[in-house]
């Protein structure tokens, strides 16, 4: 466990930097994660994916399949890695405040 500093407030994250408590999520947290993930600027494309992930998670309490994420946001898997250098699961899900993927994935 560790913490990240978001505008003076310490927020708890796990070993891989994912939020421990999903209710800690807000736009400032996204900005702080983006800096850690080496994303220079958050564009509409980033937000489109973050919002899709959050909607899906709220509805199903789990992250969507990467294939579905790509199809429904119109973002190819390759472009996903350009937007989120650590990829959809480790990068995009982290910014969206989702827990770390579990199981045989």
């Amino acid at each position: 466990m560790g913490t990240i500093n978001v505008k003076g407030k310490e927020i708890e994250v796990d070993e891989d930097g994912f939020l421990v408590d999903p209710s800690d999520w807000n736009e400032d947290v996204v900005m702080a994660f983006a800096a850690l993930e080496e994303i220079d600027e958050l564009t509409d494309e980033h937000w489109n994916i973050i919002n899709y992930l959050r909607d899906y998670f709220n509805k199903f309490q789990t992250a969507p399949m990467v294939r579905k994420l790509c199809k429904e946001t119109g973002c190819s898997n390759k472009h996903m890695y350009e937007l989120f250098p650590s990829g959809p699961a480790k990068g995009a899900c982290k910014l969206a405040g989702l827990p770390k993927p579990t199981g045989c994935v």
Partner: peptide, 16 residues
Amino acid sequence: SSTGMKRKAFSNIIEF
């Protein structure tokens, strides 16, 4: 599921 997938998510995935 160890992925955290509940029944509703499973059904959604099958449709997809």
